[in-house]
Simulated scan of single mutants.
Amino acid sequence: MSDKKKDTDWTVAEIEAAVDAYLGMLDLELAGHKFNKAHENRELRASSLSTRTKGSVEFRMQNISKVLMTMDRKPIKGYKPAKNVGSNVEQLIRTALTNRGFQPGDPAIPTADEETLERRAAAIQKKHIKEPPKGIKKPKKASSTRTVYVRDPEVRAWVRNEAEGHCEGCGEPAPFQMHDLPFLEVHHVKPLADKGSDQVSNAVALCPNCHRRCHHSNDRVAFTASLYKRVKRLIPEE
């Protein structure tokens, strides 16, 4: 039997075996324990995935990471999500995950985790919500070794969509794409650490240069003041 089967040739049993192995590693990672990806790969190829190559098993794990991300669930750090997953394979993986208790998360739930916030905001941004979200008037601090705040992914998404791919500080196009969207950083004009809100009236979409300018430049106070004149939705907060 050929090692190089198409994705659609994977059986339900093979997909389920890959998902079970993946979830076992994910449980270890979430518990703070180490695991060996290469060992797990070998174990699978020595048993339920005996007709598969090392590379095909690795790619299937990346498929699982991608599907988990579409379900707003955090994947294993060591398995970079695949760019594309065949529709048949995606459905089989999603079914296997669902049968094992994994349900899609709600991308609108606020979070203090930057990676999760970015992923949720990108998902919402692609839906192009029209009405400004309510946001969070008084963001709460989250437990961490450093100070982080719970933020609303809908605010991040809406502000970026309002910018239409251009920096609201300098007017230049976003420097690159991420998640197939123009990359702009969302800056709170009155910092959250100074009791600023996480609302669209206190947030702008900036290119990395303008964002750094707000924090570190000699003219940061004057530049910040100019944002209130340039972006009409901004409201100074006491």
Rank of each mutant, 00 (worst) to 15 (best):
V148K: 09
L192K: 02
V200I: 14
D180S: 12
R151G: 07
A174W: 09
V159F: 11
E172M: 15
N202D: 05
G135P: 02
A222L: 14
V200K: 01
S217H: 13
V200D: 00
M178I: 05
N161L: 02
P182F: 03
W158G: 00
G171R: 06
C167Y: 11
E172A: 15
A142C: 04
L206Q: 10
P182V: 03
R160K: 15
K134C: 00
K134L: 06
K140P: 02
H166N: 12
H166S: 10
P173A: 12
A174C: 11
A193W: 01
R146D: 07
A142D: 10
G169M: 12
Q199R: 11
K195E: 10
D198N: 12
G169Q: 13
G171N: 11
V200Y: 06
R151S: 07
T147V: 14
E172L: 15
E131G: 00
V148P: 01
K141C: 01
I136N: 02
P133Y: 02
E172C: 13
G169W: 10
E172K: 15
A222F: 04
P132R: 00
H216F: 15
V155F: 08
R146M: 04
D152L: 06
N209Q: 08
V189A: 12
L192W: 01
A193M: 04
K141R: 13
K190R: 15
V221D: 14
F183C: 08
H187Q: 09
V189D: 14
E164R: 12
R213A: 15
A157V: 03
L181V: 04
H187F: 07
H166F: 15
C214W: 04
V155W: 05
A193H: 04
A193P: 01
R156A: 10
L181R: 11
E131Q: 05
V200L: 01
V221K: 14
H216A: 09
H211A: 07
V155P: 04
R212K: 15
S144H: 08
R151N: 06
P191H: 08
M178A: 11
P173N: 12
C170G: 14
P139F: 03
D152Y: 09
K134F: 02
V200N: 00
R156H: 13
